[in-house]
Amino acid sequence: MKPRVAVFKFASCDGCQLQFLNAGDELLKLAGQADIVYFPEARGRALAGPYDLAFVEGSVTTPADARRIIEVREESRYLVTIGACAAAGGIQALRNWADIEQYRRAVYPSPEFISTLSTSTPISEHVRVDFEIWGCPIDKTQLLAVTRSLLFGAQPVLPGHSVCIECKRSGNACVIVTRGEPCLGPVTRAGCGALCPAMNRGCYGCFGPADAHNMESFAALLADQGVRGDDAMRRLRGINGYVRPWRESADALAAKK
């Protein structure tokens, strides 16, 4: 029997699930290797668990989702999160520093119908996660590599090093050194292929913190570049802002001003 694969969505924009659909021929080959039994974004058929491999996109922002993720975990042999929302809480984690009641009243005409949590939290704060694929959105090649490894029953391996290594492998000019451009590359996990620096822009940190990083030195570098206070804080408090090293660094910057 082919392994049963499921793709679940929580609070997210669907961009990471779309990487399956963007895989084109590779997706068809995957369908030959595995039975994709639950993937509402792609097909109407939705079968109950158990699942051999569950991909989870999005963060937990509602009481219902906080219960649902536990059910997903119970039904799944391997649970792999896809994307910044699932791994770090996503851009919607900005609510974690704000007043959710104020948001609810400002956004919705009938706020009484909105049942929401005051926080957006990563999946790993709720259940055990077997592997996290980072990125906003995730990289298709990484997604397929992790899927292949797990179908073989092998430990998936993705690089945890800085974007700088990818940048230099590609022969990009360093935007920090040549132009004094603020760039999160030195503290960000590789995986995007150094997309922004290749376009002469600083890295936005879409893949979250590199596994080896020095946030204190990086904050000092931003200050040296003339990026101060709120601006430095906002650069860290973005897509992956709620992940611990960046959260702590941004909070320290906010406290300092």
Partner: peptide, 14 residues
């Protein structure tokens, strides 16, 4: 020096 080092690997790449 480790307090300043970003561990980004640029030195070794260049």
């Amino acid at each position: 020096v480790a307090a300043r080092c970003l561990s980004c690997a640029n030195c070794t790449m260049v």
